[in-house]
Design a protein around this nucleic acid. Structure first.
Lengths: 335, 335
DNA sequence: CTGAAAGCGCTTACAG
DNA sequence: CTGAAAGCGCTTACAG
């Protein structure tokens, strides 16, 4: 049986490489992992590398994890939220930055009915990061699975405190500030009836109200819309008749729905009703009238996330300071 | 040192459970994995389960993978496309169905600059599925990593054939058919200038043209828009002046951009220009005028995907027939 | 009906 | 400068 038969038949292991290079299995590991503190002659090193390339050697990940206790995998647990426009850029940047550091980012979308086995029970991650806080059940499972590093953890995260990693706080503040500058004092806050988002809705609406109070304005009137029916029109009519003139929306889709309803009711936007969205998604530019919206740098947030994760994995102190979201308000035609 | 000290110190292993239950390590495995062909007394079984629950035992995934050669992980490789609205439902359903069968779905978002290590080099999956075809490099890496099962594979997938798993073919056909029924014969096809989507754009536009030809209509005039500027207006003006009256769009965002441009130009929709979108995303309902669009059952596609994956993993023949996308056209105000 | 033992493919002190 | 050996925590024939 020739070498090529053997490689076709079963996966190449470190033993195969050692045999081909005429060294021990340990030496193969030292060379390929660039283990510090080992002095390997240049000739041996070259022979090992040549053999591993020639045979197409890829270390068995499971064996590495078992032997070393480290997996270089970071699991990101995404709550059961709809995927929003900016999230993909966030993910791309985060996984690129982690990849450059030798880590793989695995995204675990948590779904409505919940998995029987959690992903970290399967993949032995070095670090598990939740965008939303973990439940006590999650924490027990994480502990039982030997996951030593978790974000957010108790030292960073108080359960009552809403998560800010996707710029949930600055956006609402800027929305209120902007509407106030444009002369609006009685404000509404529009969301879709999307139960999966309730924690974010609460956080953003709360931030808007806090800032309104600081400006001496009343709390924003929170209303749920449903984009699938015309009940939206009634909500908007109610706002208008009640004397509200400025609406902050949870995202651009909601803002578009409010604007659509206003147009159907014969209201002028922004003269009769000013509307500001959130996320600066494509629809904000596409809509007629174009939507004022909150823009933030999701790629920078992704890089910041990666930096946080790497600090945690390496046991270094977490970088201080706010995430570099660079939240700004883009004014267009709707305000 | 008490038991609780020990469990706090290090992860519970099968040996700990065996000791606590007074059986051998093998028996623990037999009970917990429900290994067929073993006859274990009910009392022993109960003792093992009780001990494993009490100690909070979770098997070490890496050790299981190494020993058994199977990981129960399916990696889904997602090309570098923007996430579209329906995709989340697809993912949710697919991962739920796989989870019920004891598998974990890990989604690997491929990013623009490519990872140095591919995810399957890290997690030892039983199956890797690509939404787009794999490159020769990918295939070499998959082979070297010992991934035995891949979808799509050579028997299923011819490189020239576009992927249909997200309903890329039926939608364009229905768009053309519908526009024709509404009396439109000279048609345009609108896409955003999004290079990451080029393969899907080509597939959908090609399908639309094929169906147009079957109906005796000329090919659809393909134009790229950019939602960030007003060049869209010029494209739409050109279409109108050139006598085109019906536009099929790659997705609802593009359709909304065409409608917006038409409105700015003083055209009536649908009288002067009829526009039909694709995906039936929220914006289709929200827009004024509301957009006709292509709806498909992304959750059913997700379940179908899971069934395909499980067949492949278990070495059963793949289910025959088309994916149950149930593609339909929803007529609203824009046509 | 149950247990002792080999083996999966690595990493990593340790001995030379 | 390099190799023999133990060990990571499981699974799984195999022997009793």
């Amino acid at each position: 049986m020739s070498v090529s038969d053997a490689t076709a038949r079963r996966r190449v292991t470190a033993s195969d490489v050692a045999k081909a290079a005429g060294v021990s299995r340990a030496t193969v590991g030292f060379v390929l992992n660039q283990t510090p503190g080992q002095t390997i002659s240049e000739r041996t090193r070259a022979r090992v590398i040549e053999a591993s390339v020639r045979l197409g050697y890829r270390p068995n990940g499971a064996a590495q994890v078992l032997a070393s206790g480290r997996s270089r995998i970071v699991v990101l647990v995404v709550p059961d939220w709809p995927i929003e426009f900016r999230f993909r850029a966030f993910l791309d940047e985060a996984s690129l930055a982690l990849d450059e550091a030798g880590y793989s980012l695995v995204t675990h979308f948590r779904h409505p009915h919940g998995p029987t086995r959690r992903l970290w029970e399967t993949v032995t991650p070095d670090l598990v990061v939740g965008i939303a806080p973990f439940t006590p059940d999650d924490l027990a499972s994480l502990r039982a699975c030997g996951v030593k590093r978790i974000l957010p953890d108790q030292t960073l995260f108080r359960p009552a405190e809403p998560d800010t990693s996707l710029a949930s706080i600055d956006g609402p503040r800027l929305q209120v500030e902007h509407l106030r500058e444009r002369g609006h004092e009685r404000l509404g806050y529009a969301v879709f009836d999307e139960p999966r988002l309730s924690s974010l809705v609460t956080a953003r609406h709360g931030a808007a109200c806090t800032h309104a109070a600081a400006l001496g304005l009343p709390a924003l009137d929170l209303r749920c819309l449903d984009y699938r029916d015309r009940a939206t029109d009634e909500v908007v009519r109610g706002w208008h008749e009640g004397g509200l003139t400025g609406i902050a929306a949870y995202n651009d889709d909601v803002a578009a729905a409010v604007v659509g309803a206003a147009l159907r009711l014969g209201l002028r936007v922004p003269e009769d009703l000013a509307v500001v969205g959130h996320d600066d998604s494509p629809i904000a530019t596409i809509m007629v009238p174009a939507l004022s919206s909150i823009h933030f740098d999701s790629a920078a947030l992704g890089r910041h996330f990666a930096a946080l994760a790497l600090s945690r994995v390496n046991g270094r102190p977490l970088p201080a300071g706010d995430p570099p979201a660079n939240v700004t308000l883009i004014q267009r035609e709707s305000t």
